[in-house]
Simulated assay, not measured.
Amino acid sequence: MQLLTTAKPMFIPFIVAGDPHPDVTIELALALEEAGADILELGVPYSDPLADGPIIQRAAARALRHRMTLQKAMELVPEMRKKGVKIPIIIFTYYNPVLQLGEESFFALARKNGVDGILIPDLPFEESEHIRKRSAETGISFISLVAPTSKRRIKAIASHAQGFLYCVSSLGVTGIRDTLPDELGEFLEEVKRYSRVPVAVGFGISSSEQVNMLKDRCNGVVIGSALVRKIEQLADKLQQEETKTDALNEFRSYAQSLVAPLE
């Protein structure tokens, strides 16, 4: 199932559920939609992440202090809908929380709460068939990742992709990078040759200059660490009623400035 097709490249922001507080997460989601987001990735905090760099690890630690869990993260989705969020919402979680909850319960809760898609970064393609099958049965898109190291697997991964195909721009964990790999353009061209769904690029996309460089090479950009760092900087103001509105406005403006080249 394809989540969304837009004339312009998609803006796909990532935030951590419960950071800096569960109630604030809901308002941040709305601010991102108002800033032009087409799809939201809602990260589930996890104590032992494989793909997350220091910025997102700190966000996860803040969220875990509020006892955020996979189930509670999914339960934020209908609250976001009540607040006015209309864009598709992807749950980004590692496999261990899914296993602990139980796959049947996980998909039941995802469907009950109106989750549009799931992304499990530590579940290899070769081991994901059962999850992809359940996703198809429940109408929830399973978002696949393809990395520069996936050369021999690009065609197989792309041919089974649902929603959109997430291209990892560079090796290593998430984070803010000053430059992107020279070979990224060639990698994206190869992925697009095989993909039946929109191709989005993430990992290290953290400036409007990088967005401008990528806008004609892909169907969307995923921005996470730069936004999560901004949330960290505004955390205290976002949790105080007298400063929350100004902080949300600052966050929205910052998000808009990052993706201005997409307009």
Rank of each mutant, 00 (worst) to 15 (best):
R111P: 00
N96Q: 13
F187P: 02
A60Q: 10
E183W: 10
E103G: 07
R177S: 09
F251E: 08
L70G: 06
R111V: 04
R252F: 13
I90H: 02
S135K: 00
L42N: 07
E104R: 14
F187M: 05
Q2V: 12
A63P: 05
L42K: 04
A29V: 03
G224C: 10
L171Q: 12
D216A: 13
I120R: 01
L119E: 15
G36I: 12
Q162D: 01
L28Q: 08
A51Q: 01
P49I: 03
K192G: 01
M10V: 05
K133T: 14
E137D: 14
A63R: 01
F251Q: 11
V77G: 06
A59G: 10
D52T: 04
I205L: 09
D48N: 15
R132M: 15
Y194L: 10
G18N: 09
L42I: 07
F106L: 12
I12R: 09
K151M: 09
E41R: 12
G114Q: 03
G224L: 06
C167Y: 01
S144T: 07
K215W: 08
L248S: 03
T25A: 12
L42P: 02
K151F: 15
A29W: 04
I91R: 00
V85F: 07
E186T: 14
F203D: 02
Y46S: 05
V16L: 09
A247E: 04
S257P: 00
V197D: 07
P148M: 09
H130T: 13
P54N: 06
K86G: 00
I91D: 03
K72N: 07
L145N: 02
I39H: 06
N212L: 01
L99N: 04
S195L: 07
K192T: 01
L50A: 14
Q256G: 08
A136E: 15
R217N: 07
V222H: 11
E34Q: 15
P20K: 13
F187V: 01
E79H: 10
